[in-house]
Design a protein around this nucleic acid. Structure first.
Lengths: 365, 365
DNA sequence: AGGATCGTTGACAGCGCTACCAGCAGCGAC
DNA sequence: GTCGCTGCTGGTAGCGCTGTCAACGATCCT
């Protein structure tokens, strides 16, 4: 009978409009801008849509409106715990909004990033979240030419493309070293892996702090381009102590490395913190329950993700944030592994019974 | 001049076709099924597309063809290391294919899963990857009615919706317990968190093994619905030893818990493995470098993801696998933490210097 | 040689939705 | 009373691509 209805009860906007007794365009408006409808029609369309179980066809919408409701996210790694927290924040913040997340992995390659960016931009995303501030010239140009809001996450720096949210890895590293100085440490080693731009900036912070104190020594630094792991932390630390037997602290570029260093100390019967202090970076969950508990620099990863997505969505909908650059800061969480040296005690197992302590140096910008 | 060209050099298929001197439909075919074109036209279209930098409009393609090139992935958690490995496999395998991944997080809720499934299915995905075999009746019905290939991952069980890839958590747990029995352990505790269906099946395997050996004791089991963490492992273990002081081993439902148990043992001066053996599950990277090194059940998470995606893509393109259900097996990686008990030695730090050993019980179906 | 078949190409007609613009009331101001 | 304004509604015309079918010449078989 109804010739307008296509085969097999497929529910289109037209069906909803028909049932509601309005034109398709009015029904369409209901989904995009319900305020523009009179209350009567609004409720009619709403109940018609519900009754028919209408689900909009996103492809048609994208084609007609020349834009998508996709937020592209470019991160360098899916394995790294740090990014899984950020991602969780992004997904949580986008949930309930009309936007869906399209995730891609650059594998720490800015060339790969450039390629993916080109791909994304061609699909006219509603917004983009990219990691870091080190893009290729070409990527940078594409980002600047893009006609959608963009958030750079994980760190802050000069010349944001658009919005930016993160913290200073340089300052965070300096704060960690300052903490070690305060505990009386002088021969502080640096252990780093992967050496992506953010780890590099942590190293820069370490170098600056050491130089300022007149304690810099190139031989205290051990790094590798190899992806990070707990095992690698142990191996790098082994290299370090083989070369420099007098170190009294190790600053690790991340927590996995720190855990590896802790295990290696245990393997070698090196008392922590009495002989060597350990400080990690990121403050993953396990740091608080290691024995001894491990000092780390806490970063607000979940918030970084959720705030980035929230800011982006606001910007997409026209409400640009007053402050496009957001410094989320960091916090040095002081734990047993970096306590001041005490007179050498017998390093027996089970010595570290005292409760976890959380006196902290904060940086809340 | 050319009235066909829209404003602003936007490159459509029509432009490519015009430059190549063919009809739009021929150009279209080039991208979908180049084999169908004569070599001459194929090269003409190819160079025209390259010259113009043509990028197909996916929305238009989806609208016209009534299907998308999106693979939907439903996983219960973004934070869990286990899933990040699986995801990495999925992303790696989909890279280079025409398909893009759309990821959603069910947060371990089958109701949430049902909701997301409805959303996904409405977009006519090319394929679907879902976690586990415990869907709601409604979800199950939707999956069975879906006209796209589907892979269930993480475990295997009866009645696959379509394809299935995983391993038996029940058998894996039994193998872990058998290993502990072989090491002379009898009072084996079970520590589990979150208690999602797969952890539940590990518990079932543990219970069955203990019952078969006449060693089952309900009081050896400590579980919680709380999400897993290293700290939680320590807390649950503390509960366990407070109640049952005579346990000689702990089987942990995952590696985070195992690490927490190890730290708690260290805190309490309980020698591992001389007094208590520890076995984890998943064999995350850190297990091999802990002190003592930690025994675990290795699971092929990355392969699970990559194989699932590869199978799915094959199936989408019409090549259904000969074996729709794939058991990836597991492997008990025996390490120091579960070695046979030895006469009580002084539990001094640094005792565990011997190299990591990897004699293993395998299950390769 | 004639017809059937294959491989290749093109014309046409939408897919379901929204941008754009026009129309039409109802209202207040002059 | 008329004008212009605002608020709401609808018609028209595509968005860029592909499914379907038809047409064409070339090739093959008997």
């Amino acid at each position: 009978m109804g010739r307008k209805r296509t085969k097999s009860g497929k529910i289109r906007l037209a069906e909803v409009a028909e049932l509601a007794g309005v034109s398709p365009i009015t029904a369409s408006r209901f989904f995009r801008n319900p305020e523009a409808l009179s209350v009567a029609k609004r409720t009619r369309v709403e109940s018609a849509a519900r009754e028919l179980g209408y689900v909009p066809n996103l492809a048609a919408r994208a084609l007609a409106s020349q834009r998508t409701e996709v937020i592209g996210v470019l991160i360098p790694s899916l394995t790294n715990n740090v990014f899984s927290d950020v991602l969780r924040g992004i997904y949580d913040a986008s949930e309930g909004s009309r936007y869906s997340i399209q995730l891609s992995n650059t594998r720490y390659s800015i060339l790969q990033e450039e390629k993916l960016l080109r791909l994304f931009l061609a699909q006219k995303p509603a917004g983009l979240i990219v990691t870091g501030i080190d893009q290729t010239t070409e990527s940078r140009a594409m980002l600047e030419a893009a006609d959608c809001p963009i958030v750079q996450i994980m760190e802050i720096g000069p010349n944001p493309v658009d919005m930016m949210i993160g913290f200073s890895h340089y300052d965070a590293a300096r704060a960690a070293i300052a903490h070690l100085f305060a505990q009386g440490r002088r021969r502080i080693g640096f252990v780093g892996a992967r050496m992506d731009p953010r780890v590099q900036r942590r190293l820069d912070g370490y170098v600056a702090a050491m130089k300022d104190a007149g304690l810099f020594d190139q031989r205290l630094i051990v790094t590798t381009a190899t992806p990070t792991s707990v095992t690698l932390g142990g191996a790098l630390f082994a290299d370090l102590v083989a070369r420099e037997s007098d170190i009294d602290a190790v600053f690790c570029a991340n927590d996995d490395l720190a855990l590896g260093v802790l295990f290696e100390c245990r393997r070698r019967d090196i008392p922590v913190p009495d002989q060597i202090a350990i400080v990690g970076f990121n403050d993953l969950e396990f740091m608080a329950s290691a024995v001894p508990t491990l000092t780390s620099v806490r970063t607000n990863r979940y918030e970084m993700g959720s705030t980035a997505a929230a800011m982006l969505i606001e910007a997409i909908e026209g409400k640009r944030p007053e402050k496009p650059v957001l410094d989320l800061g960091f916090m040095v969480i002081e734990r047993q592994s970096s306590q001041a040296q005490r007179p050498m005690a017998s390093p027996r197992a089970g010595e570290w019974v005292p409760a976890v302590q959380n006196d902290s140096v904060t940086n809340d910008p």
